[in-house]
Nucleic acid binder design. Structure first.
Lengths: 224, 224
DNA sequence: AATTACATTACTGTCAACAGTTTTGAGAAA
DNA sequence: TTTCTCAAAACTGTTGACAGTAATGTAATT
């Protein structure tokens, strides 16, 4: 995962203890319907803490995962077609830049790691999915690795906090298009090729094309 | 400012009352040095509320404006050369996409507004700064208008919360390069031209070039 | 039976107080 | 005078309680 910079392990909130991850797990476990009110007391009881920390954690998720309205509490943001498309547009912009920077800044270790992920991906497609590269998880690993290799902490933080996060929540409810994994692999290869060639322009273009395809696929999978 | 979509007025937090703006005003007034510890009790006293709401508000600023370390409290994030460069890279990516989308989606009202801002900008340069377009503020207006005209709420929210916000904080301490306003004007014109032509590709390129120049200017102004 | 008015309930926003940790500062030793 | 020790002070993290507001359910009326 690159060892450049200090990589504040990002992820929406790393403050005091590990409450936020548990809260997210609880929220996204499906206990709560997409538009339904989420009771702070309920969460507090369920996680065994007082309402104070819960309120802080929810506040940190505001706008991203949760919507708060005065005196009415918070509700899970619902992921409609429009929001999903917007997320992919933001991804295209940010990860395109990440690929560009990675072509300039990535270390050899970064590139080796990416090659390894490509091989895992290939094994999954050829059936002997001996582990690791679960579709979705593995794909995210690939993209996170590139973003890390870009050496731009701000870019990474925003992508983690704002984009990947919501997409992960969405993936829980939605499947993937059938032949997608195979197409994705060759697109991933094109990106890594450009990185090895140290060609920023080509890396950015390859990444943006890849994410445009991913957008179409995700939107297509939405109408099942 | 465009009237497309619902434009959750964005800006880092709009939850309960207007505490967050006041807190920001207090923080960024210069009372606190960039790396210095910020006392919650102190802020609470100064703003006339209890520590609870202060903690929530600070949590919402975590990672953007403020850095929190367990049991040690929060500190103003300091804007060094690297962070400033990263912010402009993110801007280039996101606003490039915004310009592209604006070329496709902007309404006539949006375009008229942009033309108006260009004229204000011109008047400022020609000396009779009769009001409105203060350098910095006016420039931000221009960019926010384009982002709004893109019709992409997510893009707008991220730019507002993550990017403009920190840049505004930085502008308080740093000046601008001398001839910058004039160069910026012609770059702005190129962008608006592309929007009128409904040419997404050209709009994105123009915006990215503009922000690359702005990056050089800002970094140059940093070593005074 | 359907509808409106009203009292009860539940929940959010806020506060003051407590426990644990870090920092500060005074006093003793070198 | 400088350095080390240790107790006091300050601050963060968390809790339970209180005030005000929205939702709920019951009873009376049409």
């Amino acid at each position: 995962m690159s060892e450049g910079k200090r990589d504040t392990d990002s992820a929406t909130g790393q403050s005091p203890d590990g409450l936020l991850p548990r809260l997210l797990e609880t929220i996204s476990s499906g206990h709560f319907a997409p538009g339904q009110r989420i009771s702070e007391s309920e969460l507090a009881r369920q996680l065994g803490v007082s309402r104070g920390p819960i309120r802080e954690a929810l506040g940190r998720l505001e706008g991203r995962v949760v919507e708060r309205r005065p005196n009415l509490g918070v509700r899970l943001i619902e992921m409609d077609r429009e929001k999903l498309e917007e997320l992919f547009r933001v991804r295209e912009a940010l990860e395109g830049m990440a690929a560009r920077l990675a072509a300039e800044n990535s270390t050899n270790t970064d590139l080796q790691r990416l090659t390894g992920l490509l091989e895992q991906h290939e094994r999954v497609i050829q059936g002997d999915a001996q582990g690791g590269y679960l579709q979705g998880i593995g794909d995210e690993d690939f993209h996170v690795s590139i973003v890390s290799a870009s050496g731009c902490g701000t870019l990474k933080r925003i992508l983690m906090d704002e984009v990947y996060f919501q997409l992960r929540l969405h993936r829980r409810r939605s499947g993937t298009q059938p032949g997608r994994a195979r197409a994705a692999l060759s697109e991933h290869r094109a990106i890594v090729d450009a990185l090895y060639a140290r060609n920023p322009e080509r890396a950015e273009i390859a990444m943006r094309e890849h994410l445009r395809s991913a957008r179409f696929s995700a939107l297509g999978a939405l109408e099942e």
